[in-house]
Design a protein around this nucleic acid. Sequence first.
DNA 1: CGCCTGTTTGACACCTTTCAACCGAAGTGG
DNA 2: CCACTTCGGTTGAAAGGTGTCAAACAGGCG
Lengths: 241, 241
Amino acid sequence: MQYRRGQEIYAPDDPADYWYRMARGTARKCAVRADGRRQIVDFLLPGDFFGLVNRHEHHFAVEAITEGTVVARYPRRRIESLADTDPRVGRRIREVAFESIARSQARMLILGRMSALEKVGAFLIEMAERRRDGAPEQVVLSMSRYDIGDYLGLAAETVSRTLSDLRQGGAIRFEGTHRVRIVDRAALEEETGDGDWDRTGRRHRPADPFAALPARSGHWGFESGALRLPTKHEVRVFRRN
Amino acid sequence: MQYRRGQEIYAPDDPADYWYRMARGTARKCAVRADGRRQIVDFLLPGDFFGLVNRHEHHFAVEAITEGTVVARYPRRRIESLADTDPRVGRRIREVAFESIARSQARMLILGRMSALEKVGAFLIEMAERRRDGAPEQVVLSMSRYDIGDYLGLAAETVSRTLSDLRQGGAIRFEGTHRVRIVDRAALEEETGDGDWDRTGRRHRPADPFAALPARSGHWGFESGALRLPTKHEVRVFRRN
DNA sequence: CGCCTGTTTGACACCTTTCAACCGAAGTGG
DNA sequence: CCACTTCGGTTGAAAGGTGTCAAACAGGCG
């Protein structure tokens, strides 16, 4: 099936008769509240499966972002009976599902405990990694700043500002509004603390108050490897340059 | 297997040789950063499956919260081969996985787009619903305020304050620090906007600026059905009473 | 009883949102 | 071809919600 920009692939409460696989283009899976607040739960890129649910109805809406988005659609009941007879199919479905769980849970870390700078940095890295077609420092952002904001739990203005900060800080370069080149990937990676999430959580924060704070020495900037969060004043000065 | 309060059930990077099912007690699945920031990805209550991953290693730590937490442990490879031969097992695993996906994605809505008041309200309702043993307006919070905060992406102090606000607003009552009775469930439910998430997201927020705003009429409080977010000043006055 | 962990409350700082304005690009119709 | 509109992006200024720091308090346990 082919879709136009903005077209709905399925709506919440639609009967969940199909499972889907993105073939070309980009889509967003999202929920919207009456007051206009929106949360994008996932961006769907080529190769991604979606629409896998138990119930007979979907919970979210999925909408095409790019013109000419192409989606493969599989009748749910047939796939399920196929999985019953062919163990490889069942195994593959479980793999896809577990992958989805891992991705969802990784996003909780981002949504719950990261600053705007870290969120946007993590987002750029995620988009770079998810490109299957090489060029890992080329990032194409097919979605709008509003979409990115609703994906990260930020206002679109904050996304725009943060991207500008990263650019001025030398971590990225713009090659058009929707095309970013990662110049200093190490800075972005350490910024997001990508590998930092680990180990036990037995100790609470109040129990180790002087554990590994980010170095406050030096001035603002990324020369120390990791991006440090500049203070308000520094940012202001920063932006004026 | 039985665990003591705070004991680790598995660590990140542990070989993922088992799948688990919570039998008694409560546990948290979490990640911690070097700087002390922690995100709890899920609370595990009796009946919940966990540890389902593709890879050979886990990504998160799981730790018992209550003394005497009991967990059933299943060898992963045996379950997988069992699933290959018995379609019902495979089906069940998929169900569990899809359920987990739905829960994760529902939590994104909470983490990304809700205020502290809404987060805590949603949390109380979630805990009430997940109790299998009746008494749906009795909520037992086995976990600490720090745990709740790291689950919701809030500071523990904010959780405490918000609970106090809900108590003073008449939505809940304390029956001990870790035991809450939901007095005005409707207020909590409308507060979280539980049913409000829906429909298409084709329109961005800037495109419909005067869509269904929460009624600003009346004074603070819950009399209008939904909890409205009090302004800073109102909260201050509120708390002094 | 004293220590320790966890909870509550207060005061203040600050990051992010909100409200605006401006700008550029794309599409439309005269 | 050029107004005109619309949409999305960027930037500024002000407001506010939440985090941080701090202190007091309660409960459990040796």
